[in-house]
Simulated scan of single mutants.
Amino acid sequence: MFDIGFWELVVIVVVGMLVLGPERLPSALRSVQRGIAKVKQYSQRVQDELDHELRIKELHEHLKKAEQGSLDDLSPELQRSLTELQDAAAQVQRPYANTENSAKPADTPSASAENPPKKDDNA
């Protein structure tokens, strides 16, 4: 990325030692490292979002092609895009459908039936 050689790094470290001192230099380097990590993380999120938007645009173009032609004689790529869009639409219409299927079966006893409340003998 940067064309910095060994001697340039040595000069930067020496100037940093003179300006910041040996006590504050390690914390300054950690701060710079954290800042660089945040910039990388942000750029990765932007790239992921752009990829997602491009994929959505591609799916819309495929949908327009499918609408213009007959739905029976689509190319495999257009058919796959159409199936993807139908699945996405189904997930939007019923977003909690998967959690309903993972509910407990009816024949499983509940916790309250296994451990009935005890009577208080002191009362």
Rank of each mutant, 00 (worst) to 15 (best):
F2C: 02
E8H: 04
A88P: 01
P105C: 07
H60R: 11
L82S: 11
I56Q: 11
K118C: 06
M17P: 00
R30Y: 07
A113D: 15
E61N: 11
E8T: 08
I36S: 03
A89M: 06
G69Y: 01
E58C: 02
S112D: 12
A103N: 12
R55F: 05
L18W: 10
D121R: 07
E114S: 15
K65R: 15
A37T: 12
E53V: 13
E77Y: 05
L29D: 00
A111H: 05
H62L: 08
D73H: 09
Q68S: 08
E67D: 05
E100G: 00
Q79F: 02
F6D: 11
A66M: 05
E49R: 09
S81K: 02
L63D: 11
P76M: 04
L29E: 00
A37Q: 10
D73T: 14
G21W: 04
K38Y: 06
A123V: 15
E67M: 09
S43R: 15
L71H: 05
S31M: 06
V46G: 01
P95W: 02
V10R: 12
R30F: 04
L50T: 08
K65S: 06
E67R: 11
V19I: 15
G5Y: 05
I4M: 10
N115H: 13
Q91Y: 02
V39N: 04
S81R: 01
I56L: 13
A90R: 15
D48G: 02
R94C: 04
S102R: 14
L82M: 14
L54R: 15
M1Y: 06
A28L: 01
H62N: 10
G16A: 14
K64Y: 02
G21A: 09
P22T: 15
D120M: 01
V13N: 06
K38D: 09
D107G: 02
K64V: 09
P117Q: 14
A66G: 04
D73C: 01
N115I: 14
Y96V: 14
V14N: 10
E114P: 00
K104M: 07
T99F: 01
E8Y: 01
S27A: 08
P22K: 14
P22G: 07
P105T: 08
P116T: 12
L9P: 00
N101W: 04
E114V: 15
K57F: 02
S112M: 11
K119W: 05
D107T: 13
L74K: 05
T108V: 15
L54C: 04
L74T: 07
L59Y: 06
L85N: 13
L74N: 05
P116S: 04
K65D: 06
A106R: 14
A37E: 09
Q68G: 03
N101E: 10
A66Y: 01
E77T: 14
N98I: 06
V32H: 06
Q79P: 00
A37K: 12
N98Y: 07
E77G: 07
R45S: 03
G16M: 08
I12L: 12
K118F: 04
D51K: 09
R45T: 05
